[in-house]
Amino acid sequence: MMVEKTPALDTFTYGALIFGIALVGFPIFYAIIAATLPIEEVSRVPMPLIPGDQLFHNIREAWSRGDLGTQLFNSFIMASGITFGKIIVSLFGAFSIVYFDYRLRTFVFATVFCTLMLPVEVRILPTYEMAANLFGPLQGVWDALGLNGLVSWFAGHDIQVKLEFSLLDSYAGLILPLTASATCTFLFRQFFLTIPEELCEAAKMDGASPMTFFWRILLPLSKTNIAALVVIEFVYGWNQYLWPLLITTDSKMTTAVIGLKHLLPSPEDPPDWHIAMAGALIVVLPPVLVVLFMQRWFVKGLVEREK
């Protein structure tokens, strides 16, 4: 905001802004240039800052060498699965917490809320074990109850029952553990609390069932909040690193962000930085486009999440 005329300071402001934008943009600018150059140019010291004409060639090379088609598909499934799952689960959860009254309500809310303090980074191994065998905890119950004996008696011969259901190397494994979200539930709860009481009263008077109220009134009202969360959660899902790294061993199930590591030239290889940069550009493109095109909702969503 400008209160008085300060020409010198204004010049400085615009100068600093342009400099700042250029500085922030430089890494990606440099990557774009590198992605358009042939190998002789990119390994020249210093690399020329004029774009070449090899962009499509490099992209094709990165695409086939890094198996980007498969990986981008996996990333897309994971990101959309997480986005959709988180929003649905949180919407239902917040609806239940705000519009119903039951004894465990506060307890349930606290349970969901405290997951804020348990990011995957602090429970790496046990979460992996859980995903490796979803029925692991049930096995303990099974053994403790001595059900093996019962089954053996029933079948007439010795049977050892092993309960096993693995999520490793599957889309369900990539998506499910990340669909619980304290922040989304909290955001929807805060929003539902601001909705006038009269709406629910009127709906009830008209004989609407809870689910009709949810689909016909609550959901349309939440549109902007949902749009904001779609942007944030899509970027979050696309950029996941640690969890996909743990849970996938099959190269057919890797995501693009992790797979990019294999395009990096090691000291023994020819310095194929132009291929690596072309690959990096493809992988960052989807989330960057989502953020730029949905900027308004994105900024609103980010700032609201603070409250």
Partner: peptide
């Protein structure tokens, strides 16, 4: 003003609770 059906309320919160118990609290 709220809805009186308790079963539906538990049913709606169930996915959230199952995921948090399985992938957050049990591993922790």
């Amino acid at each position: 003003s709220y809805f009186k059906t308790r079963t539906l309320a538990y049913f709606l919160i169930l996915p959230q609770i199952l995921i948090t118990l399985t992938f957050f609290y049990w591993p922790a």
